[in-house]
Design a protein around this nucleic acid. Structure first.
Lengths: 147, 147
DNA sequence: GTTCAACCTATTTTCTTGATAGGTTTTTCG
DNA sequence: CGAAAAACCTATCAAGAAAATAGGTTGAAC
């Protein structure tokens, strides 16, 4: 599966934080409750987002998490990459993967690279506010069939 | 991973069969040797392709596999779907998956549906001869940036 | 009737992912 | 100060999927 549970949850967390950002720092507990996701599991996910700098947390009473930038500065591509680990459609395109023996002769490598790039182009255009509102470019529009 | 080893191998098998189709029925043994893939493992993959009608096999001496149609009638989308089981980017879009509780309220469902569709649009355009030759629409071209 | 090759079923092994558990630090506030 | 709230950290377990292997049966050709 290209997008794991971690990735899906991360999107939901980011949407939740965007929707509730006027309340300052949001405790993970609240997010977990609203999203009906185990708080413990969410912890491991938001930890990735935090380490990557997409959100910041402060500890102690009154603490919680918040976005580090304006919502429109996040793309679905970035969020998914961080939480999911990779968005490579095949193992051999994963970052840090050992170069495959067949690298030079592989006829399908280019196909996978293009899938990868297509995803980046599409998801890189979709911003957090668009995810919040549900209004974003459709696949058909993106493919230029309707423009 | 969106495309499993099965999917990748299936693409290679189809390319191999296309390249060698003037030799009539091609024994799996030959494909396995050329592609450097365990014959036993290939068996399980070509079995999927055969059941789905993409290739046909005949038994006995002089037997083997061959394509059932003209190469240009196969798309990467079809091949990958058959061998990979699904091309759904998330579990909840898999064929036969139980409808998720959050179906109505899920803000990200539409995103995943569009990823799915984008993939179908792109891979549905790429034919077997294009895979053989390595000449097909790039992601950039597809996204309309260069047209 | 032997050989070749598809076809079938089951099992094992390996790996990733999902999920849980149990703690420690840091901060606020009474 | 000390209790509560919250992030943060590390380890481990559980489940499932994917990769790969094993050992056969059936059918066709020579």
């Amino acid at each position: 599966m290209l997008i794991s549970t971690k990735g899906r949850y991360a999107i939901r967390v980011m949407i939740d934080l965007a929707e509730n950002r006027q309340s300052g720092y949001v405790p993970l507990r609240d997010v977990a409750e609203r999203q009906q996701i185990s708080e413990k599991y969410l912890e491991s996910i938001i930890s990735l987002l935090s380490k990557a700098g997409l959100v910041e947390g402060i500890r102690g009473k009154g603490g919680g998490y918040r976005l580090t930038r304006e919502p429109e500065e996040y793309t679905a591509w970035e969020i998914l990459n961080v939480a999911n680990g990779t968005m490579a459609p095949v193992a051999c395109l994963k970052d840090g993967a050992p170069e495959c023996d067949r690298h030079d002769i592989c006829k399908s490598l280019s196909l996978y690279e293009n899938i990868y790039e297509l995803m980046e182009l599409y998801l890189g255009e979709i911003t957090l506010p668009q995810l919040v509102s549900g209004e974003f470019t459709t696949a058909e529009e993106f493919a230029g069939k309707k423009l």
